[in-house]
Design a binder for these strands. Structure first.
Lengths: 150, 150
DNA sequence: ATTAATAGTTAAATGAATGAACTATTAATA
DNA sequence: TATTAATAGTTCATTCATTTAACTATTAAT
């Protein structure tokens, strides 16, 4: 990369990531039922996809302390969306799974989000989109790497 | 866009934006002083760039209600980073500006963030990066548009 | 057998967000 | 002009999200 161009590109990235984030999060919130937040939906999504996980897994995925996960899981557990099961081999470990209500709520909301994202991405040619996602993917690995080695 | 590919691309976008967001926000938080949060830095940044703005401007930019802005500005005002001035023509309006302390704190933190983002973006060839930012920019406009017409 | 480390929770404190009710001021209109 | 609308911002109560520090229980290491 040419040093002379760096500052402008960095500024542009900072501005765009802020703006896309805020606007995107706001639209995602609009798809939620009144009794759930976007973080709670992301939690349902992760557990749904991976079937079962531990609070420690979630803390790593969400980049927060485990006590933050305990608090969120408590709120979702009270609403009947999540189950806790102790590992019989290693009794320190807790497995989190979705209840039937959790699954069905997740699927309904995720469908609305898919619809929203589809309508966003429809504004792009397939090739441009694929190129974009390819670079986005690399960026994701770079960020994961920096986070891993810190 | 070919319908058959859509679902995969949508899934990929959802996963990447989540992951880049969480990892990115976590790294940005690491650049903050202990007495400030990333939202507070973003607020300093916006006011710094635009010199002066109203709470309503901030509410629009951050996509939150005005009462959320009042609360954040109060916290930053208590720390001596922000000034409030009433408009003499229209006495309903409040102008927010940075104090000298606010400016200097902003600049120190922003420098660390620039350094971080530079080291991230250094992993890309200039052309790939420019192409990426171009699409990211389009995406930003699409999101802003959807938000405007809702 | 004792000490370390790991998994998870609890509790107190702070920040961030909303909705509803409120003040003050300005704009619209009958 | 007098009354009514709308706008800008704040306050208050409530909920969610997060951190730090202290804690329990369990397993691993020496």
């Amino acid at each position: 990369m040419l040093p002379i161009e760096i500052k402008h590109l960095v500024d542009q990235y900072i501005e765009l990531s802020f703006s896309v984030n805020k606007n995107g999060e706001s639209l995602v919130r609009d798809q939620m039922n009144d009794d759930m937040t976007s973080d709670q939906h992301y939690t349902l999504r992760y557990i749904y996809q991976i079937k079962s996980c531990t609070p420690s897994d979630l803390a790593k995925k969400f980049q927060v302390k485990k006590s933050a996960i305990t608090a969120m899981i408590n709120r979702m557990w009270k609403k009947g969306w999540i189950q806790r099961t102790r590992d019989e081999k290693d009794r320190r470990v807790v497995y989190l799974t979705l209840t039937e209500e959790g699954k069905s709520l997740y699927m309904k909301t995720e469908e609305r989000i898919h619809h929203l994202v589809s309508s966003m991405l429809n504004n792009f040619e397939q090739e441009e989109l694929e190129q974009f996602l390819c670079t986005y993917q690399k960026l994701q690995r770079v960020l994961e790497d920096i986070n891993k080695h810190k």
